[in-house]
């Protein structure tokens, strides 16, 4: 037992499967009430990392603690603390939603009235209450996923682990699951570790992200910190007036240049923060702003920046022009 503030501590973790290095010496910590995202393409080693944290695989080397307990030596303690939704389905399709919940509760030492009430409360939370006595084999993919989330919460885990929680789901169901995750964090102060290869999902939900590739963590930080690696946002303005003197006035801009007739691009650290000031400067310089837009680099660009490859299967499509631009300027 090791006392610490962090709920998850991973130190120099390595996992080999025969000759495959699935996890290659990674270290990170997760603080309480954080939503920590492991983002990476297929085969990056996300699931392997999670299975080690969940005591289902043994590390080849390195140490992992959950709530201060070593996942190898104190696996039983660790199992008490975590709730997990696996990447692949793990429900008993022959049984009803209620029975799946009931068996889980019993395995975690709950019983009687208390167990029943919690089952109904959680089925209600994931909007499956009216399907409680329906067999899981008649459930849609989204319903199964929601049931798995409800099940993983039954024993009130300190750490909720979600392995690709929205993989293969339609946009509405994804949005719904995102809402549950936000609510868990807000209402229940839950710490959540989630893996995903959708960058919009990581960006939308995670307070901190580790980007994984080929078993290594290649970058880690808040979404803003990661995007700051690309050094800022781009503001696009269509304006009338003296462009050159206007540009000179923008002391906060890293770069300000004309990209077309009446159109300029301003590179800044944080576009939303400087926009008001920019408007003020325009006003006092008699420059009329006709159009304004800004783009923030997404994690997609960060991944591209770090690996030269793209995270595929992203929902949010990035415009080609901007991508070409970024290659020119940020690499």
């Amino acid at each position: 037992m090791k006392l610490m503030d962090e709920i998850v501590v991973v130190e120099n973790l390595v996992k080999n499967f025969k000759d495959i290095v699935a996890v290659d010496n990674i270290s990170f910590t997760i603080g309480r009430r954080e939503i920590f995202g492991l983002l990476g393409p297929n085969g990056a080693g996300k699931t392997t990392t999670i299975h080690i944290i969940a005591t289902l695989l043994k590390p080849t080397s390195g140490r992992v603690f959950v709530s201060g307990y070593n996942v190898v030596e104190e696996s039983k303690r660790v199992r008490e603390k975590i709730g997990i939704v696996f990447q692949d389905p793990s429900l008993d399709n022959q049984l009803t939603a209620y029975d799946n919940m009931y068996i889980h509760g019993k395995l975690y030492g709950l019983k009687g009235r208390e167990l029943h009430d919690k089952i109904m409360e959680l089925l209600d939370f994931v909007e499956l209450k009216q399907f409680a006595s329906k067999k899981v084999r008649y459930f849609s993919g989204g319903m199964r996923r929601r049931l798995e989330i409800a099940r993983s919460l039954l024993h009130e885990p300190e750490l909720l682990i979600l392995d690709e929680p929205t993989i293969g789901l339609d946009p509405q169901t994804r949005a719904r699951i995102w809402n549950y995750i936000r609510e868990l964090r807000r209402e229940y102060d839950m710490t959540i570790l989630l893996t995903t290869h959708y960058m919009d999902e990581a960006e939308e939900l995670a307070s901190r992200i580790a980007i994984m590739d080929h078993g290594k963590i290649i970058a880690m930080g808040t979404p803003d910190e990661l995007k700051a690696m690309l050094r800022g946002d781009a503001i696009y303005l269509v304006l009338r007036g003296d462009i050159d003197s206007f540009c000179r006035e923008l002391s906060f801009a890293r770069e300000c240049r004309k990209i077309a007739e009446n159109r300029i691009e301003v590179l800044v650290d944080n576009a939303p923060k400087v926009l008001p000031e920019l408007f003020n400067i325009a006003l006092s310089n008699n420059v009329v702003i006709q159009e304004v837009s800004y783009r923030r680099p997404t994690l997609n660009e960060v991944f591209l920046h770090l690996t030269g490859r793209e995270l595929r299967e992203t929902i949010e499509e990035t415009p080609v022009i901007r991508r070409a631009y970024m290659r020119r300027h940020w690499r």
């Binding site: 696996f86 429900l91 008993d92 395995l107 030492g109």
Partner: peptide, 13 residues
């Protein structure tokens, strides 16, 4: 079908 994982990760012996 994956249910085995559900039992492997439970704290019961």
């Amino acid at each position: 079908f994956g249910f085995l994982k559900e039992t492997l990760v439970a704290p019961a012996s």
